[in-house]
């Protein structure tokens, strides 16, 4: 592992803002979810299955929210690093491609570590409450879903930082850096709202469905997960193939737009990249 990559990971894992929002803030909701909102008690096999589904939903939705919080902070750090990046890629060993790859890999590793903390705490706290160890049925599937989420959110954050630079609207950074968090909360809103077919068009909204499917093996609905969990209403099952295509498509869109903006950002003087 190169020193740049090591320091990138260290940077993200030691930034108080990222720790506060990505872990502290989300852990609060983990505790609320497990100990306050989940009133069900274990008993029959069906109830255990419902609890396991509830736990799976908790790490899926809260994990995604944690990633979104980290991505919001990432927009900031990518914006600031872009000033030094000009110099780094010209007069040091780190070329443009290596810089992008290492920055991306470092961020992805850090994002996944943040999510792992949320995942483990959901598993641990739910074991404390119900004595049920709700490990994913398809762990590889869950890991792949989380990696895709991390990739998509990294490029969304990068796209935002570059859009601010290219449009020369640096003062808008504070506002637009929240876009990943807004995306995360729209996905989170599916706990109560059924987006219907809109779910396939909204960035990253189908991800909790993929995570829930790989976590518990059930075919989740297009939204209104709590209603689905309670069995109050029959909801249409999500098309997992379309869900996966949607997530891949948005990830590719973010990557392509970032690369286009990266080319456009080349001529912008360093003085303009400051708040």
């Amino acid at each position: 592992m190169t020193l740049y990559l090591r320091l990138k990971i260290k940077d993200m894992l030691t930034t108080p803002e990222l720790l506060g929002w990505g872990i502290g803030f989300i852990e609060f909701w983990v505790l609320m979810w497990i100990f306050v909102f989940s009133q069900i008690s274990a008993g029959t096999a069906w109830k255990i299955y419902v609890i396991k589904t509830n736990i799976t939903m908790a790490y899926s939705f809260l994990g995604l929210l944690s990633m979104s919080s980290v991505a919001a902070g990432l927009s900031y750090s990518l914006f600031y690093a872009s000033r030094a990046a000009r110099y780094l890629t010209k007069f040091t060993r780190i070329g443009i491609v290596r810089f992008i790859v290492e920055d991306f890999l470092g961020s992805l590793v850090a994002i996944l570590i943040f999510t792992l903390v949320i995942f483990l705490s959901v598993i641990g706290f739910s074991y404390m409450k119900w004595g049920i160890l709700a490990l994913p049925e398809n762990p590889i599937g869950v890991i792949v879903d989380l990696i895709i989420a991390g990739v998509a959110l990294y490029w969304l954050a990068y796209m935002i930082a570059l859009a601010v630079i290219v449009s020369r609207r640096t003062k808008a950074l504070t506002m637009v850096s929240y876009i990943p968090l807004i995306v995360g909360f729209i996905a989170y809103s599916q706990l109560w709202i059924d987006l219907g077919n809109l779910v396939y068009f909204m960035p990253l909204c189908p991800l909790p469905a993929l995570l829930t499917y790989h976590g518990i093996g059930a075919y989740p609905p297009t939204g209104a997960y709590f209603m689905w969990l309670a069995g109050d209403k029959l909801l249409p099952a999500i098309n997992l193939r379309l869900a996966a295509i949607s997530v891949f498509a948005w990830t590719i869109i973010f990557i392509i737009l970032s690369l286009i903006l990266l080319r456009k950002s080349k001529g912008i003087p360093i003085e303009e990249i400051r708040l």
């Binding site: 940077d11 750090s77 690093a81 030094a84 990046a85």
Partner: peptide, 15 residues
Amino acid sequence: VLAINLSEVYSVFHL
């Protein structure tokens, strides 16, 4: 090839 002492290029991370 070249090096410069502008402090803005030596702040990459929050480290």
